[in-house]
Design a protein around this nucleic acid. Sequence first.
RNA 1: GCUGGAGUAGCUCAGUUGGUAGAGCAGCUGAUUCGUAAUCAGCAGGUCGGGGGUUCGAGUCCCCCCUACAGCUCCA
Length: 636
Amino acid sequence: MSMMITLPDGSKKQFDAGVTPLEVAKSISQGLAKAALAAKVNGKVVDLATPLNGDAALAILTFDDEDGKHVFWHSSAHIMADAVQHLFPGTKFGIGPAIKEGFYYDFDSEHVFTPEDLLAIEKEMLRIAQSKAEFQRSEVCREDALKTFGNRKEIYKVELIEGLADDAVISTYQVGDFLDLCAGPHIPSSERIKAVKLLSLAGAYWRGSEKNKMLQRIYAITFPKKEMLDDYLFRLEEAKKRDHRKIGAELGLFTIMDEGPGFPFFLPKGMIIRNELENFWREEHGKWGYQEIKTPIMLNQQLWERSGHWDHYKENMYYTTIDEENYCIKPMNCPGGMLVYRTQMHSYRELPIRMSELGLVHRHEMSGVLHGLMRVRCFTQDDAHIFMLPSQIQDEIRGVVQLTDILYKPFGFNYWLEVSTKPEKAMGDDAIWNIATKALCDALDEMGRPYKINEGDGAFYGPKIDFKIEDSLGRIWQCGTIQLDFQMPEKFDLTYVGEDGAKHRPVMIHRALFGSIERFIGIITEHFAGAFPLWISPVQVRVMNITDSQKAYAEAVTEQLKAAGIRAEVDARNEKIGYKIREAQGQKINYMLVVGDKEMAEGTVAVRKRGEGDVGARKVEKLITDLLEEIKNKAY
RNA sequence: GCUGGAGUAGCUCAGUUGGUAGAGCAGCUGAUUCGUAAUCAGCAGGUCGGGGGUUCGAGUCCCCCCUACAGCUCCA
């Protein structure tokens, strides 16, 4: 029996039935066979040792493919478990999956792992890797699986088996002395693992639930080449340098102190970025027909009971009592916005009404989740509530998505959209949720925008579209959000007078585009590694003289720049020019202007541009024109 | 909130078996007047995160808090 295999390059070739992907790879190239980690047969990832029966399209996975890496790291997790089993007998095993970069395994052990243990485990893993341990797959029936893992007191594995569907194929993999419940696939042999690094130790709840026992999770990464590990560690160090918490301190943007955990202080330079962002935001919102309002930071408890926040969000709210009446500090801006809408009667002719607010909200976040500016306890949402006719939903959502694109454009980062559906703890019935969710998806479909669905991740009052951005350490943050809200207009009995003279219920969108000004500043700080585009940069220009004799000229040039509205400062200290340059470079100042006798005589400045170095001398007037142009363009 | 390591000068860190708190950078003062990533010298700077305890004596050992960090869980 023979069959036709479509090879990775698209060509077809005949093979005998039962040939394995590894053998196919060898027939194409020994090099490929050597690098092969797993295979993809008709789109499904399998072991290299899987016999092929019948025609198939075959792809050989190496460490260059995402799927290949995934298999490699998943196999490495088994090796780590084997090592832990050797060093700490009696350890029970949770799960050990591959993640985006590396893998982890969750252990339940009497012994609390120490950093020294990690080194020992690392060593043992390398030993196992070098021993060329092979991965052996077996398929077993449910009873045998339960017996095998039950005898070993592997309570977590037993729980996993019990949770498998009735018709599931149950397979195990043996590598070294370690047997694991696992669907696979795996690399053929541990010898492909040449470099191992255990990265961190952390607690993690079994199955991610707070109610379950906390296991010890070890994060690690492995590579098929030693140099790849060095490269990875170098990249990790580089990423740490971009951390907005570090840059924020170095550049004097913001600070968070013990006196107010989670409540950031904005320093003068951070305030410049903030104000520039807000100016830009106001300008664009003005063009898109928004009217700005400001609602109080604290309103009485009754209001929050009415809005539903009291029932759904109480544990995250701060309260106080004034004149024996209970008040809540707002965790969201919507109820205030509803009250504003109700101050007047509205006609269908007025709709849509777009009401924006840079609203300061406070949320009692759990202490362990705080993270620089990305996750704080008080932040400013660039909020807006849009009240409209049901027939205007699509247009308004489209408008908001377009406005978001405009607001994100001057930063040039990658972002993607996700639609979140009804959560467990929600107000309103399924029917209304379905209509609302469909409206969001329809608007995006119509615009041809791709998006991912997050089941059950919506707000308690409605489904949403989120804009997600990744930070320097690969964490993903939600920035913009567009939430359709059919609940709030109901709760607050909002109405408009229709064409027919009767009262009708408006539909509402609740949206924030930067999301939180604080988080957005954190995101762009990391995105630019502190080297902000000119228009938003706290210090755009620093003028430095070479010797004291040009001090007056340097100061005069600085004043001239400032008068033109450019954020310029002078470094007229009695220091060497190299020293001044070094400092300005560290502060990521966009333009360094050096003035010596030559420039003073000519009425010019020697221009050194951040990232480009010396770009020659320029007349001060010409420079001002150029800078103003660059600021206006918001180039990055 | 939970788990794990951690907190010493503004910053980065050293501090032996418990015995008078140290360095570099930044800061201040002076000298130097210099052409594109660190000029030299001097001075000052700390209730060792906070509170208890053990001890003749605690940065160091024990207990309780607080905070930042990594992760889990939760979220803009």
